[in-house]
């Protein structure tokens, strides 16, 4: 059923699958941008907004950010490996990327658990920011709404990315990729880099500003 057609010269030599991934990333970016801009608009309209480091654990998340950036590097190494037909390097670096993603998710789950279970010091931080109770929930003012929506939507992307890369990982272990066949690894990499890039925006807007 596959066909290679001469007319479709647009967008250079990119494969059809890669082109579709780019289009998908544009679309996904638009959803993220809507959520981020919506959050910024609501924040600007709010009478007060808590300092980022009062409730949130910024150093822990800064480590998470560093970790995610590292996985972008390992992803590049994996692609580099398959392009050199180095199967061991491909499998190793894909595994490391997945591991990084899983740890990132673990830390995010820990962070959520800590907020949702609640404790006294969190309660103190919350009351310092003008919220009542000792639990930080999606219903804790606009701040909670923006925090949970943005970070969980990104977290879902990391989760999909981990599953996606795991499929590629299994295929790579079976040795189906090589220096003449690495398109799907590259496409998966595009998605992973995108998720990293979005996280840098999310981290800056939610945790730093």
């Amino acid at each position: 059923m596959n066909q290679t057609l001469a007319a479709g010269k647009s967008f250079g030599t990119a494969t059809t699958g890669k082109l579709a991934m780019w289009l998908f990333l544009v679309m996904d970016a638009l959803t993220f941008i809507t959520i981020l801009i919506g959050g910024i608009a609501l924040r600007n309209a709010a009478p007060s907004w808590p300092q980022a480091d009062v409730i949130l654990n910024v150093p822990l998340t800064a480590f998470n950010t560093f970790l995610l950036i590292c996985t972008s590097f390992t992803m590049v190494m994996a692609l580099n490996g398959v392009q050199r037909n180095d199967q061991k390097s491909l499998v190793k670096y894909l595994g490391l990327t997945i591991l990084g993603g899983v740890v990132f998710l673990g830390i995010q789950v820990y962070e959520y658990y800590h907020f949702i279970a609640g404790n006294e010091s969190l309660g103190a931080a919350l009351s310092a920011s003008g919220f009542s109770g000792d639990k930080f929930l999606p219903s804790t003012g606009m701040y909670g709404a923006v925090f949970y929506t943005t970070t969980s939507f990104h977290g879902l992307h990391v989760l999909s990315g981990v599953i996606y890369l795991f499929v590629i990982f299994l295929q790579a272990k079976n040795g189906i990729y090589g220096s003449d066949n690495f398109d799907r690894v590259e496409i998966a990499g595009l998605f992973w880099h995108f998720v990293d890039l979005i996280w840098i925006l999310v981290f800056t807007i939610i945790y730093l500003l």
């Binding site: 638009l30 809507t34 919506g38 929930l137 999606p138 219903s139 606009m142 949970y148 929506t149 939507f153």
Partner: peptide
């Protein structure tokens, strides 16, 4: 533009289900 409304619908759904107040 469907991705844009998707974001709006997600926020609407969260308002209804999780008690956010977008």
């Amino acid at each position: 533009f469907v991705p844009v409304i998707a974001a709006g619908l997600i926020m609407l759904l969260l308002d209804r289900l999780l008690g956010t107040q977008f």
